[in-house]
């Protein structure tokens, strides 16, 4: 009881230094025991901060918008298609691509934990792993979409995919209008992380322009 009394006086943020110290202590213990190599830890962090992220998935989507053969392969075997662009590995072994159409909108969640297609999207954002999204995505997907600023008309069927196994889902958003002559590189800039989770749509050319303007 005295512990909770102490905490009362620490105020906001008191938990953070505590966890930081405990993590540091665990890390040095594991290094001392010879279980982990500190240099490997740095490379792991760098990999997911700079190399593996939603730009990978955006490249996959942009290619599928331009290359019909690639699009077919992506629908048939998304792990192989993403792998052909160099995006393979942990948490993407059984990748399935879900294509949005004018009639159907797909959206992905993991109600039980935080399953997410790492090789194409990187590590998941906090909201994806949090109780509000996990609880409501399956029961009120249209309400959730509204919270993300997407008003889905009643005529559009909404399909929610709860990732309860090792299958990892990524959404292929619809290609925006007015992008007929765009290069693959430029198209990829329209593909947001949320559009590949299904809580957003691909940016329009105007939205991209606005996002670039400071």
């Amino acid at each position: 009881m005295s512990k909770s009394h102490d905490h009362h006086h620490h105020g906001e943020g008191s938990e953070l230094p505590d966890i930081a110290l405990r993590v540091k202590s665990l890390e040095s213990l594991l290094i001392e025991k010879g279980y982990v190599d500190p240099e490997a830890l740095d490379v792991l962090i760098e990999t997911y901060e700079t190399k593996v992220g939603p730009r990978n998935g955006a490249a996959v989507v942009a290619r599928s918008w331009l290359d019909e053969e690639f699009r077919k392969q992506l629908i048939e075997d998304a792990s192989a298609a993403a792998g052909s662009l160099g995006f393979t590995g942990r948490q993407g072994e059984h990748l399935v691509a879900l294509e949005n159409t004018p009639d159907t909108h797909n959206m992905v969640v993991c109600t039980l934990c935080s399953c997410y297609p790492w090789p194409v999207l990187g590590l998941p954002p906090v909201w994806y792993k949090s109780a509000p999204y996990r609880s409501r995505a399956v029961a009120d997907p249209r309400g959730v979409l509204e919270e993300f600023g997407v008003n889905m008309p009643d005529e559009t069927a909404v399909r929610v995919w709860d990732s309860t196994a090792e299958i990892r889902y990524m959404v292929i958003p619809m290609r925006p209008e007015g992008t007929q002559d765009w290069s693959e590189e430029d198209l990829a800039q329209l593909v947001t992380r949320d559009s590949m989770i299904g809580t957003g749509l691909a940016l329009t050319p105007d939205q991209l322009e606005a996002a670039k303007t400071p």
Binding site: V23, E27, P125
Partner: peptide
């Protein structure tokens, strides 16, 4: 659903450590 407009991969060094140690083990 609290969405951070521009979200970093990790929010603190200890998060980086937890992630890295869990993966390396």
């Amino acid at each position: 659903i609290g969405v951070e407009p521009v979200e970093p991969v990790f929010h603190a060094d200890w998060e980086r450590s937890v992630y890295a140690v869990s993966s390396a083990i």
